[in-house]
Nucleic acid binder design. Structure first.
Lengths: 151, 151
DNA sequence: CCAAGCTGATTGACGTGTCAATTATGCCCG
DNA sequence: CGGGCATAATTGACACGTCAATCAGCTTGG
């Protein structure tokens, strides 16, 4: 079969569903986190720092750990620092470097939020799908990623 | 089997893959549209207006057509108007109302961008998946949506 | 050694999205 | 008819993300 130039109506429908449902799911999760005053980004950063040795990471390591651009992380850490969730310290081994350190308030809110958040993942995502669908979802995401990075 | 309290490691992996892959795919598409100077939001609005009778819609109809909150639409239309992509006119039948009208520049850019965009959907999304995966994706999105609105 | 270039991180400008407040008009009931 | 409530839309404040520019410190080849 020759490569079709344009998607069919049905393919287009699935594409739009993919985009819109993704937005719906993310915003549903964001709303739940927001009740405890955290954004999804906040949670991501707090999780990474919580798991890091000494609850601290170089900015660049943190950036690759969460898959963000440096600049995005820098802005986000600035906001989190202002709220007292993290501290910034200079790096001893490289004077250019900066380290982000989990602050007490950050540790406290993370511990308070983590288990409810895991339950929310189950309620919003896992419980919505059959085991077969969940497996298929994993494969679909892998295929999309693979295809994207292959270009 | 009793309802598990927390997701398993594998379920968590799929959840994170779902979120991250969604972001990857959306940003890949955004990058392609950006080459023609359009954001995904711009495209959505231009598409809706192009298909509307008279290439015009009441703000509230446009909002429900694209599934946005009023306020978001208002901000976005403001930016698009500043760039000359749309015009705003008063509504004759309801003095509170406003209509968004496709401007010549908006029509031109949309016609220029639409076919390449459809090709991009095929390249980024459709071509990455087998027909079975595409069908499964549709069902998974439907299940997630259904589950969300059911709460 | 030291200038040139690379790397780590921050900053500013700007587009985008949400929430709450505001403005203006329509509509209904007493 | 007119006070009160609903509705249409906008606005302002702020969080978030990207891009390009910047700055400081490391590193290396001539």
């Amino acid at each position: 079969m020759a490569t079709r130039r344009f998607p069919t109506r049905e393919e287009l429908r699935v594409w739009r569903d993919f985009i819109e449902t993704g937005e719906l799911v993310r915003s549903a999760m964001a709303a739940r986190l927001q009740k405890d005053g955290l954004s999804p980004g906040d949670y991501t950063v707090l999780l990474a720092l919580s798991e890091a040795p000494g609850e601290r990471l170089r900015s660049s390591e943190l950036a690759t750990a969460v898959g963000w651009e440096r600049s995005r992380l820098s802005h986000h850490l600035g906001r989190m620092e202002k709220r007292g969730l993290i501290r910034r310290e200079e790096c001893l081994t490289d004077n250019r470097g900066a380290e982000a350190v989990l602050a007490p308030a950050g540790r406290a809110i993370f511990q308070q939020v983590n288990r409810p958040h895991l339950r929310d993942i189950r309620e919003i995502f896992v419980d919505a799908l059959t085991p077969a669908q969940l497996e298929a979802a994993g494969e679909i995401m892998a295929a999309l990623r693979e295809h994207l990075t292959r270009e």
